[in-house]
Design a protein around this nucleic acid. Structure first.
Lengths: 204, 204, 204, 204
DNA sequence: AATGAATGAGCGTTCATTCAT
DNA sequence: TATGAATGAACGCTCATTCAT
């Protein structure tokens, strides 16, 4: 039992190394431009070993995405827990900004590879995305119930926030970062917080 | 002179065909998965001909992107012109939503290929993105000056809107469309318009 | 027209080179042990060129077999024509022996690769094998009609001859050749001719 | 001593399982297409264990062939013993036909893999083939001595019979079986018996 | 002795690019 | 100028063999 546990642990270690390497390489170079050779080198395993642990290169992508959406959902839940004050939109977006940077690789893989692998969305992302909408909706609904937010339909607001969160992922993108807006992200996100706050708050 | 012009014209025609084919194929399959063979077939030219008009496959991507950002900028300017009433945020986002669908291919190519080809961003997108920010800023500033919007820093608001516009691009993505949100886009965008309007408008 | 013919000719030349190389390598090393790299080297083309002319390695095998069975059928017909004297069984088997050696590679490929590629048999070999049986049957029937052979069922005798002809293919095989029977083939085939002749001839 | 014998016995048991699995897989899929993984699975041993009992995959083939030729020789001897009536050529070929089907796997491996592994022929098959020729020769010689067969050179006739026996191996081959000759094997073999009988018998 | 995870050379195949026509 | 056949490096993946357990 101990032995089999050890083996399993050793197994997970390799898989973990592979997935971590894949997450990074897929994010930086894209899925297609990343070769299994590079994956093996960065994972410090032989190329053949990749295929002992994953059926194909595509399976590795699926695993990275699966793990990724779990992490993103966890992030979101944690953020909403920590920023329980429904007036603290600044805190919320600041958290999100940190998440965007902390999980920069994950986000790139999960969001950018999606359109070309629709079959990978169905099982995994939908479930996670649905959960994200649910926790966001509960968060908003709480704010509305407390008389903090305007009595909008919470589900719709949740979707709006999700789209904004997705939009913020672009921050970690040469498109925006190469601009003459060094660290302007903070300005943007705080202006965004200001606007959203004003737009959501019930003006008594 | 006439002959060379004719040739040049004929040349442009081929280039146009190639770029149109490329835009579509790159959007649907991604840049890497699109072969020059497919490109040639859809363009109705021989494979070798591609390389008489473009240095390499990558150059074709650069050209598609360049053309794409021009179109996106034109779209934005046109939208802002048509929706000159600064209270009509609903109209603005509805326009944007139409643009997202009309230029679905373009957006996919311009936004999704960007992170993996940062060198293509520098020359082209930055200029266009800067112009977009400029026209958005002018649009906002006008609203502020008219006493319509709250006296926020127009440049920051412009960046916020740009991020929101980018975020709306996700609408055309299996990630969101496969959800149980059929046509919910309209709901989302109108809720978004509502929130932004409330957040931006000067509450007299 | 001339140009296209030239191109076509040049094409056929390459395909011919590939098929000839394949025939030899498949015969000597077997299909599986022959790499496309070797095929390309012996054909004096680049590896990629193989796949311009043939869909896959297996298609090359199919083409070799197809060509092979045509040649074997031609051989048989020619043999039967030249040995029209139905008493000259020695001549017939001597011809066959020559054919076995002349088309040693072809025979190896056609006969030995067959069991592992049954799908390649259906379209090609069956037709040819049927034709072989037909010409053999006609040959035998003529002999019977002339009162030369015993009045056996010609179709059955044709099958017997075919099996004997196939058996003679083993002559070109380390199994038999490595024996201490140098050139004993001739003895065997002449004894065989003797026996068959006695067995077939009508003893008046 | 007892323990080592037990171990040895256990060893032989595994080897037996491996060889039986190999015989079947090599016959059905060919040597090259059979992986050591499949071999291990069918043998119910671990992949590594194969290499404790056999130096390499090729050694397994050699062992299968060696065992195979022994069985084929035994078959032949048994057949000749049971069909001691030298006029019963029909019985002889009928026996052979049964052997062909009973040892279909063995025959495929021994005959079809031979040309691609000539080094495996030298030590094993030659000896067995020689023995086969010897028993056949003795069988024929007895028939001649009894005044049953024509006074041909027995050694030559033995070779003829061997070639015919080899040829009959083709019966178990898609090449012949896919023909519109359902069960025609029996017809062929009986016609063959008829012809040989007539060809060999001394017409008094 | 038996295991099965790890290995990495080598496979069949693809495809951006070149160049003779 | 336009063509498309030829190229060959590089790809994802397989599998006989090794070796730590």
């Amino acid at each position: 039992m101990l032995l089999s546990q050890l083996k399993l642990t050793s197994d997970q270690k390799i898989e973990h190394r592979i997935l971590t390497a894949a997450e990074h390489l897929f994010a930086v170079q894209g899925y297609e431009r990343t070769t299994t050779k590079q994956l093996a080198e960065l994972s410090k395993v032989a190329e053949g070993t990749l295929f002992r642990h994953f059926e194909s290169k595509k399976t590795i992508l699926a695993a990275v995405m699966s793990r990724g959406w779990d992490a993103l959902l966890d992030d979101l839940i944690e953020t909403l827990c920590e920023v329980s004050d429904c007036q603290d939109m600044v805190g919320l977006l600041r958290h999100r900004l940190q998440d965007v940077h902390r999980h920069a690789d994950l986000i790139k893989v999960c969001l950018l590879q999606t359109p070309f692998h629709p079959e990978l969305c169905e099982a995994i992302q939908q479930k996670r995305l649905k959960q994200m909408l649910d926790v966001l909706e509960a968060y908003i609904q709480t704010g509305i119930d407390r008389g903090c937010y305007r009595p909008l339909k919470a589900a719709n607001v949740a979707q709006v926030l999700l789209v904004i969160f997705l939009g913020m992922s672009w921050f970690d993108n040469p498109l925006l970062n190469a601009q003459d807006i060094p660290q302007a992200e903070i300005q943007i996100s705080e202006t965004l917080a200001d606007i959203l706050m004003n737009g959501l708050l019930l003006h008594s």
